[in-house]
Design a protein around this nucleic acid. Structure first.
Lengths: 326, 326
DNA sequence: GTGAAAGCGCTAACAA
DNA sequence: TTGTTAGCGCTTTCAC
């Protein structure tokens, strides 16, 4: 790979001139510019990133640390972040923690060592430690989906309000014994639970049953099966996330009950199969693309102006009707 | 962040000694080692990656360039590559091309500039140009899922044989008018088509209809709908990939035909909803985890020994019976 | 066993 | 407007 010296020699100028021209900084005469441009083209010159980084003490890489890359919600966020970053000439380093605090800690260290310009992270739930670590890094940080420390910018969804709206919609369907399947140890599930209970109490109802379970398909299925087999089974259920919904839906399917007549079904997240079953699922769709774009935008602003006051952006979750509620 | 100089000062030795100690290279006295270790710990020292890279002219980053990060198949590969790389103290830079040759080209350039240690790539179909670009980079490369240039290592699936087995299974179900929905411009679809046709011809059948379509859900749906409405509709269909299968399944569902009685259904890829519908889908499951691990292993071997003869590993696609065939 | 010093490629301060 | 040069943090000869 040609270096700046090669270009300088080829163009008959100094390395400083080449550098200035590459960065579009400072004064360059037209003739010098033309010579350098020609040399750059001829040699296929590209500045060495490691050298730039060593000088600037800062890379052009953004880290995106998500808790589950397979989750379409985060997949869409990745795409949006990357697209936005690319427009600004930045790269994105995507890391997957699988919701594991240690993995998260590991990546935080690696990213610090790589001197990334900033971090977008969906922090794992129970890691005060990591929040502190994040603070110590002294890097620009934007949190998405969850918030583990209010010192940082955050892009969140209006979980409580959205849950309130979704629950209200269930109630309007005339359901009386409404159960909730909520993720345990989950920031978002907690927020959603509040809206759920608020809507119920306003309607003079109380939840038929609320279960707090690990947010996996198997657990959703088991929990739903036991609800259905209980003495006073629910006539509707709300799930706090896609994987739980997947398991719960299967349990209902297995039980042979019909949706929406015998049991109403509603969930957060819009899983890929949501309009694939019939009737389609009525859901709260999270604005993943907007979240990604906003996160990238916030992060870049903070990189440019580290002393900004931290702010929180709450985006609207959209209620999509498809037929799984009366 | 503490630098090597700080550590050297703290330990009362030279930077060279610290460097040797960090890399476990050369001779170090026990006493020096102890002093340096203490200093490293006290200062929380971590070598600066940019400086190391500038010296070595080589980073500790692997690039993984996939055609669709949302596709669970590639998602699983990512995970496996990352896990393997991490064990070796390497990082993985995941890039998503969305099957776009220009995006691919862009990432190739960026990765070259970042001086990644090697590249794992599922090359976009129609880019001889990029294959050449890849050659010019002179970097270690392993191709996965597809192969655009036989000069590189490749980890592939036994597509032709798997398609042969799947098709044979369809025939054993007593289906007579078997249609195929294959991705257009796709390396894997081409290989699968060969096995499909071989099995049919061995059974004295010819394909009811073969359609080559862009591998998206909408196209799968449209194509399947038109097949069902044709004069001589198929009594079974094989899809070459998950998205096509998703669309096709929906079209069948909409038509009200029952699976497997009125129409048999089989596909490559094991989409998340495959055992979610009933009957579950009979599929060829690709060994994504193995592919990822093998790719990382091959790449690391090639990094260590660039002159190895390129080799191809063909992994076995597993036939999973679930009930969508008689 | 250890240290001094060169040099990787780049940018910015300063001098011309 | 352009060139000279120091120095970012690290590793690796080479000399001691």
């Amino acid at each position: 790979m040609a270096s700046i010296k090669d270009v300088a020699r080829e163009a008959g100028v100094s390395t400083a001139t080449v550098s200035r021209m590459m960065a579009n900084k400072g004064y360059i005469s037209e003739s010098a510019r033309a010579k350098v441009e020609a040399a750059v083209k001829k040699l296929g010159y590209r500045p060495n990133r490691a050298a730039q980084q060593l000088r600037d003490q800062r890379s052009r890489i953004l880290a995106l640390i998500v808790s589950d890359i397979q989750n379409p919600f985060f997949g869409e966020i990745c795409r949006a972040v990357e697209a936005y970053a690319r427009k600004q000439g930045l790269c994105v380093f995507v890391c997957n923690t699988d919701e594991n605090a240690e993995t998260e800690q590991h990546y935080l260290e690696v990213m610090a060592q790589e001197q990334v310009a900033g971090i977008i992270i969906s922090p794992s739930s129970r890691s005060q430690k990591n929040a502190q670590a994040l603070n110590k890094l002294g890097l620009p940080v934007v949190m998405i989906d969850r918030q583990s420390d209010s010192h940082f910018d955050a892009i969140l969804v209006d979980n409580t309000d959205a849950a309130y709206r979704l629950t209200k919609r269930v109630i309007e369907g005339g359901y009386q014994r409404i159960a909730g399947l909520f993720g345990a140890d989950s920031f978002t599930a907690r927020e959603r639970l509040i809206g759920f209970e608020k809507a119920l109490s306003e309607a003079g109802l109380s939840a038929s049953q609320i279960q707090h379970i690990p947010a996996f398909e198997a657990q959703g299925r088991t929990a739903m099966t036991s609800l259905l087999q209980s003495d006073n089974p629910p006539d509707a259920v709300i799930c706090s996330s896609a994987l739980i919904a997947t398991g719960a839906y299967r349990a209902i399917h297995d039980s042979g009950r019909s949706i929406p007549e015998e049991i109403g079904f509603a969930t957060f997240d819009d899983p890929p199969w949501a309009n694939f079953v019939s009737p389609g699922l009525t859901v709260i769709r999270q604005p993943a693309k907007l979240i990604g774009e906003a996160a990238a935008e916030f992060l870049i602003k903070r990189i440019e102006e580290p002393q900004r006051t931290p702010s929180i952006l709450r985006l609207h979750g959209e209620l999509i009707e498809r037929g799984s509620l009366r």
